[in-house]
Amino acid sequence: MGGPSILEVLITYYPLFLRGLWSTLKLAFISVLLGTLLGALISMLTLSKNKIINAIGNIYITIFRGTPILVQLYIFYYFMPMVIPILNSLPKVVTIVMALVINSSSYVSEIIRGGILAVDKGQTEAARSLGMTSKNCMMKIVLPQAIKSIIPSLGNEYIMMIKETSLASTLAYNELMFVKTILSNKFLIWQPLFIISGIYLMVTLVLTYGVSLLEKRLSVSD
């Protein structure tokens, strides 16, 4: 473990780490944000009473939760542009985001489904017995109550995603983990790893604390 100390590397290259971190946070945020929109749609499929629609949703979830995210990244990165040629003319990050969004959506859809199912069935019954349409019942009665358990879980999904985006470094995407690859060209091998770990740890700790505060806030208003 020769060479400069961790502190020296950090002081010299901190802009690189900061840029990597910023890139990681953005990538994870966009993935979870779009993943949430898509996940909401998928959760509607899995909540449908129609058996076929239901099966489509469940197959989707099974596939994307049942295969490693790294494999999904590679398939989207190398294979998708062959199938959808327009992707060749877009930045490579688009395929990475696509993979992360789809992966995230499969987890988020289960979060949303769970949140919706956790709302007392009596709420739906009361609303429907009043003659509320199923759409209004979902939008005005069930979702506003489900959101309380959904939002903290989405926060946790964001924290997971921040860690998982590190896999994009294997596709030369310039996020936090990729700083290790950059610095290895300067024969700095072990220092960046510890610095990167420290940064991930700090970020996830802060965010985990944030989520727990949010959880408390949301539960008092019950």
Binding site: D120, G122, Q123, E125, A126, A127, S129, L130, I141, P144, Q145, D222
Partner: peptide
């Protein structure tokens, strides 16, 4: 057709 339930089912939010 109004309906009233044993457990009230008022909307808490």
């Amino acid at each position: 057709i109004g309906m009233v339930f044993q457990h009230f089912n008022v909307f808490p939010h």
